[in-house]
Every structure is written in C-alpha cells, then in structure tokens.
Design a binder for these strands. Structure first.
Length: 373
RNA sequence: GGAGGGGUUCCCGAGUGGCCAAAGGGAACAGACUGUAAAUCUGUCGGCGUAAGCCUUCGGAGGUUCAAAUCCUCCCCCCUCCA
C-alpha cells in the first residue's frame, strides 16, 4: 500500500469503515485525532497517546512556524522526530487561526497578512508558504490554506470567502502536485451556512485532485441543527473513495452524527481542553469532576473505562487533584478523555464492520441525554 | 507599667458619618468550553421575597446623630516598641 491509498472496508448506511495509508502507517477509520497544536498534546506524552489508542494526531502550521520555527523543526529531522511521535501527523494550515485570531489579520487574494499573537511581528501566509512550512514539518497530511468565515457571515461574505479558499486550494495543490512526495494533501470545503454555497465550494474543491476532502467552517457558534443540516447535506457531495474529514468537531454525539453522515475523520480540542477544565466524558455521560458530590466518592470515574485514571484512582482523588490544581490532574483527565474519544471512534468502526452502527449510536445517545435536536 | 497600632461578611483585606449588605483577592458552589493566544472564562456568594422591599451584620455594651463599620465612653482581645 502507498500513502494516499484508501480502502473502504464496510459501510452501514452512509457510515463507513476504511483504512487510509500514510507515510507513517495506516489509519483505521472512523478515527478521532487528538489535537497537539504546538508539537504536544497538552499534558500527555507519546506513550500516553499510544496507550489511549491514538493513531494520528494534529499539529499546527501557524503555531509551529512562529515557534520554534518550521526550519528549526526540519533541522531536527521533522516534526515526528522532534516530538518523538512516529505515527501519522496531520497539520492544519493556519486557516483556523485566520479565523480565531481575526483581529490580528488581513486577507488578500494572495494570502493572509497577520501579526504574531506572541510578539506582534508581521508575517504573511501565502498558499506556497503554508505548503513549504508543512513540508518542513513533514506531516503525513497537509491541509490547504483556507478561510473559515465567522458564524453570522452573510451570503455575500461566504461567497467571496469560498472563492478565496478555492483559489488558495488550487495554489496549494500546484505547490505540491499529487505524487510529488509521500505527504498527502486535503482540500477544504467552505461556504458558510448556505447549502448552495456549500455545494458550490464542494464542486470547486473536487475539481482539484486531493487525497482527501474536509468539511471546514462548522462548530463556529451555530446551533446544533444548523451544523447537522450543513454536514448532512455536504458530506454526500464528497467523493466516496476518498477520506472525508470534519474539521474541529466535536462532542461525542457530534462525532457519531458525523460518522452516520459518512465522515471518516474528526479532530477536536474538546477532550483535551475540557479535561484541563474539569469536564470528563464517560460511558455514563459528562462528569464535572470538581462537583462537591464527588468529594467522598470512592468509585472509579468510569467503571467501563480501562484508562490509567479509571483503573487506579477514585473520583474523590481525581476531584482532589483537580481542585488542588495538581499537575497530575491535567494528565489523568486528559488521558481519560482521549481514551474515551478514541474508544468511541473505535467502537463506531467495529459497529460499522458488524452492521450495527445505529444501535451503537443509540447507546451513546442514551448516556448523553438522547439524540441531538 | 508606659507609648503606639489593630479587631470588618468563611479567610485575607479595603472602607473613617449618608451613594454600604460593605471594594478587591481567595475559598466555596454552579456553569461554559467544538481545525487550542484557554491548566481558561462566566455567574452566585448574610437571611426572607418573583419583585419592590424588609430583616440581621463590621470585637462587646452603652451613647451622640434624621442617619454609625465610620464619632464618643467603658470593657474584652491581639500585635509592635520602650521599661
């Protein structure tokens, strides 16, 4: 198998189970990808990630370019070697930072002019630049530069933004044509919350040959029904024989809704960030570990979980660690949440392979208070 | 024994006549977090009441005043320095 090969193993409704080949090994989908923005999944190490079952993690172009610098990483032998993670890495292009750091940037047809959030220094990201950075990082999957329009953007804005993203996507591909190396490149569909613009963006993006296609610009503040509607309408427009990636999503229920719609890959900061903020995802639903009710609770966080935190420690102890701001709290909480999200995706894969995805999804929904509106 | 400083709502700590149920911080309690500028942010935090409002509270007891955490008297306790 070669990087970019995508083998569809089973379907259950629109849900799929597949294997994507990369330069650093195979990824079995559906898959959840932990976010490791600056070359580290916050508070855990590569062994923790392995133990949690992580197959592939994210890195970020914008952040690593600013610090420590992609050239420095290249001199260290690339991001995998630098961070001692030898499994696949997907790098986001900085498109999301164009959105989340919007006060510090200016868009032009040629790219994004922005100021570093670290020191205010001016920088410019063109499609070429973003590809060159991701080549230096040596990620297995590069993302094209895109603009993620803010929620509430009007039709006009979304249409112009889509145009910009399509141009940038073509330029990114041109800077790294298919087959020019072992790195894969994914295109990104935008179009805001307008179904016809989503369709147009999909068509424009599909004109360009990518190894995978992503859905961007969701979970930016819209309601659940809005997100689901766009996702359900757009996912089927993406090629069946290529991986489909829903960027930045989501909650356990969002992920299952995505899988049901035919999405293969997900990433989200939710498990890691919420872990550091005391919200844990379990087979029985959310647990806010700082709550007083766990003060003397000797039971495991999640009796159905085999992670380090659940195996060895009580809720009372985890609460104490969190309340006392002990560093161990961040690590254990993160290990647990990643364990949960990764197991969720693995379970979904197994369910698809066995043709019982609907029942699997219903089971999780029951734990999280029923299906989403 | 003498001189000075101080006791404020769970804690620390502002407040020296009305705008004070009393700044700010902490703790506590609850909530948020979706391609990570996040180990972050928000709310509540004397009692009753939906509310207007009423009641209780600034070491204790009295007093002055239309009005006192703030002024006066006495008492209790703590700290610093001198003997």
């Amino acid at each position: 198998m070669n990087p970019g090969d995508f083998i569809l193993e089973a379907t259950d409704g629109a849900a799929r189970a597949a294997t994507l080949m990369t330069a650093h090994g195979a990824v079995q989908t559906p898959v959840f990808m932990p976010v490791g923005t600056v070359g580290s999944v916050k508070s855990v190490d590569p062994d923790d990630l392995d133990a949690a079952g992580a197959q592939i993690i994210l890195g970020n172009t914008y952040h690593l370019y600013l610090r420590p610098g992609d050239d420095l990483v290249a001199r260290r032998g690339g991001l995998h070697r630098f961070m001692a993670w030898d499994k696949p890495i997907l790098t986001d292009s900085g498109g999301f930072q164009v959105f989340s750091l919007s006060a510090l940037r200016k868009l032009t047809p040629e790219g994004v002019e922005f100021r570093s959030h670290l020191d205010g220094s001016p920088h410019f990201f063109s499609p070429d630049k973003v590809v060159s950075i991701q080549r230096n990082l040596g990620s297995d999957i590069m993302m094209v530069l895109d603009e993620c329009p803010p929620y509430g953007a009007d039709r006009d804005y979304a249409a112009r933004s889509l145009e910009l993203s399509a141009k940038w996507a073509a330029a990114c591909r041109a800077a790294y044509p298919q087959g020019s190396g072992g790195q894969l490149m994914f295109g990104i569909v935008q179009g805001g919350f307008f179904e016809d613009l989503r369709a147009e963006s999909a068509a424009r993006t599909l004109e360009i040959p990518f190894e995978g296609y992503a859905l961007g610009g969701l979970s930016v503040g819209e309601s659940k029904p809005e997100m689901l509607a766009i996702m359900r309408r757009t996912a089927p427009l993406l090629p069946r024989d290529k991986p489909r990636y829903l960027m930045g999503v989501g909650t356990p229920l969002d992920i299952l809704d995505g899988i049901e719609a035919g999405i293969d890959m997900f990433d989200c900061v939710l498990p890691t960030r919420n872990a550091r903020n005391g919200t844990l995802f379990t087979s029985r639903g959310r647990v806010n570990i700082k709550r007083a009710e766990y003060r003397e609770d000797d039971g495991p966080l999640d009796p159905d979980c085999s992670c380090l935190a659940c195996r060895r420690f009580s809720r009372a102890y985890l609460r104490h660690l969190y309340v006392a701001r002990e560093l161990l709290a961040y690590r254990l909480n993160t290990i647990h949440n990643l364990h949960y999200f990764l197991a969720l995706a693995r379970g979904a894969r197994r369910a698809v392979l066995e043709g019982r995805f609907a029942a699997y999804k219903a089971g999780v929904e029951a734990a999280y208070g029923g299906p989403q509106a």
